[in-house]
Write a protein that binds this DNA or RNA. Structure first.
Lengths: 210, 210
DNA sequence: TAAATGCGATACGAAGACGTATCGTATCGA
DNA sequence: TCGATACGATACGTCTTCGTATCGCATTTA
């Protein structure tokens, strides 16, 4: 991982020299990774307000200077750490809409069952108002791609006739993703197996009597 | 509002004397309210970790001692403030399941459109892991009552035959509430009018082709 | 009127985090 | 080998918040 690839470092050199090596000892990739890891785990424990550079340094086994050499402050550090989060949904297999939605929702349930990921998500929602750049980056790197996968499955279902032609894609999308959010809110109760199937089937067939 | 009614104050008197007046100047109800208000608005701005007693005192126009006389520390203060939150859903009118769900979901959308309420909610989710007592109280006073209203409407729908007999009440509940959560996540985009109707109708009729 | 309690204001020391600076050592290119 | 840069460690002054204590005044009961 080079400075040019990640954009992590605050590089004072002109862009023209980006590909060239600077003299002296290069920055440690190991330190980079340790700092990102420590930042994310401390964020999950304490939130953005509770995150402190000194603890990040201690947990990463790194001097404070090594952090300040790379990032000007707390928010920038966290901002780069967020971009490392992405836990992508699996690619739908395209057999049937029902199967694809099932697989995607089960993957989401699984991700939310990991306490660290669940907390990262909940915390980011809460801090969104206070640190808008954080929320924006999380939205771009994690949330929107995830939504787009689901939207495309729904659109394909309309195209193949598996779904009604006039399905409200967004309403359906938010019912699907929201069902996982609303359910897994507490974190302590893992979403029970079969939950994804129940949601998908109820949504596909509808609550109304025939 | 008396000490006995609210349980706010840390009362050193034995319970037997609860109804009796203590000598000396009584505690100011106005200060109580100002402290609760300031606590909630500062919580919405900064979260639990960012909440600080000195700012609460300043915003409430109150001395620090007046706060510490009532609560031993930050978390207890916040804990009582949370109990003041409850924004109850309207009582369903019982005309039809569709109408009732529509009204409830619209009320939820409206509540989440208020930035302060939306932030309070998101923050509480995030802080839940760190301050379990906070989350527990919020769950008891706000979330569970709200869920129960929706559940009862769904159950009634099954009883009247408006809904399928084998409807999965919990899956439907979480799709309904979750659709609002997932949609209003950003806070900046107010949920557009008609969203609740779209969700309810999609859920009642189902996505599947006939 | 006297005793008791609450009020807002303010001062205090302790603790912790901030961001900077400076050690001596390590690792690179030339 | 030499200059340059990064490393981990640590010391520093500053700021903020904590929770406690005290002030003089206000409000209540007896």
């Amino acid at each position: 991982m080079s400075t040019a690839e990640t954009g992590l470092a605050q590089d004072d050199q002109p862009a023209a020299l980006a590909g060239q090596r600077r003299p002296g000892r290069p920055r440690s990739e190991r330190a980079d990774r340790a700092i990102m890891d420590a930042t994310l785990s401390l964020f999950a424990e304490s939130g953005a307000a509770g995150l402190c550079i000194e603890k990040v340094a201690a947990r990463a086994g790194v001097g404070k200077a090594t952090i300040y050499r790379r990032w000007p402050g707390k928010e920038d550090l966290l901002l780069d750490a967020i971009a490392w989060l992405k836990a992508p949904l699996p690619e739908p297999r395209g057999q049937s809409v029902r199967e694809d939605l099932l697989m995607l929702l089960e993957a989401m349930c699984e991700q939310f069952a990991d306490p660290r990921q669940a907390r990262e998500f909940a915390l980011l929602l809460g801090e969104g108002a206070r640190y808008p750049r954080l929320m924006t980056r999380y939205s771009e790197t994690v949330i929107e791609p995830r939504r787009e996968v689901i939207r495309s499955v729904l659109r394909r279902g309309v195209a193949t006739g598996e779904l009604r032609a006039d399905v409200d894609i967004d309403a359906a999308l938010f019912m699907l993703t929201g069902s996982v959010l609303a359910r897994s809110r507490h974190g302590d109760i893992p979403v029970e197996p079969g939950y994804a199937r129940r949601v998908v089937d109820e949504l596909l067939s509808g609550l109304g009597a025939r």
